[in-house]
């Protein structure tokens, strides 16, 4: 695993460097599992989720250096705001992914960016609320509820896990691990569900027995965060 982000979170819980490392990790995971995601999508959708997400994340990667360097440069002098970085990611996904994942993941990052605003680093509790804003945006955009067999099934438990961790005073690393585990559970729970949204819903009962590809990529996103944020280093949350 790329551990590039590990240990970079000594200043704040979640800052621009951590987010950049997280996105790199996620892009690498999506690329590595591109065919796997596409196969999941082939079973119940239009067999393009892996390809679409990979295209989107590669585009994000090609923009990241600029955004990240900008952040680093500002970090040297002043604190780099997270909002613009997350919004850049969102807009890039919106215009490059192509499938429904484009506007959905795009909205996730755009809303997270909006919620993060000018803050340069977030405590665990703040991070939980930023993620919650993103997930709420995804729900609004896709009009999906829990149990519809969509990415929301992986993302909703994440919000609960992050908030619970924050309230319990957990460090960011522990919160990120709890979030990834919650996403994994939510993802696995999509297997027996009958799809009620998106193209898989055309299959009706026959969508049962397959893991939802969107929930799978959402789990990858949280798993990448857990690895990057939990990789060690002091996460004292003082800034």
């Amino acid at each position: 695993m790329s551990a590039g982000g590990a240990g970079r979170t000594s200043e704040g819980a979640v800052d621009a460097a951590a987010v950049t490392a997280w996105l790199r990790e996620f892009a690498a995971d999506v690329a590595a599992r591109r065919d796997e995601l596409t196969e999941l999508d082939a079973a119940i959708g239009d067999a393009d989720h892996g390809v679409n997400m990979d295209r989107g994340m590669q585009a994000v990667m090609s923009k990241l250096p600029a955004a990240a360097i900008g952040a680093d440069a500002r970090a040297a002098s002043e604190e780099a705001p997270l909002g613009p970085l997350l919004k850049t990611v969102g807009m890039t996904l919106v215009s490059t992914v192509g499938g429904a994942a484009g506007p959905l993941y795009g909205t996730l990052f755009l809303e997270m960016g909006k919620a993060a605003g000018d803050r340069a680093a977030l405590t665990t509790a703040e991070w939980a609320e930023v993620v919650a804003a993103g997930v709420a945006g995804v729900q609004r955009r896709g009009k999906a509820e829990a149990g519809d067999k969509t990415m929301v099934d992986a993302l909703l438990p994440v919000v609960g896990a992050l908030r619970a961790a924050a309230q319990g005073g957990a460090e960011t690393s522990a919160a990120a691990r709890a979030a990834a585990n919650a996403a994994a559970q939510g993802m696995r729970a999509t297997v027996p569900l009958v799809a009620r949204k998106g193209r898989a819903s055309y299959l009706g009962e026959r969508s049962a027995g397959h893991q939802d590809p969107g929930a799978t990529s959402s789990w990858l996103l949280l798993e990448a965060a857990a690895r990057v944020l939990g990789g060690g280093g002091a996460t004292t949350g003082t800034d």
């Binding site: 679409n52 295209r55 807009m91 919106v94 215009s95 490059t96 992914v97 192509g98 499938g99 484009g102 506007p103 795009g106």
Partner: peptide, 15 residues
């Protein structure tokens, strides 16, 4: 479509 090589099928909110 998308602003990607090969006339990629898809939709782009910015377009």
């Amino acid at each position: 479509g998308l602003d990607e090589p090969g006339d990629a099928l898809g939709t782009d909110a910015t377009r």
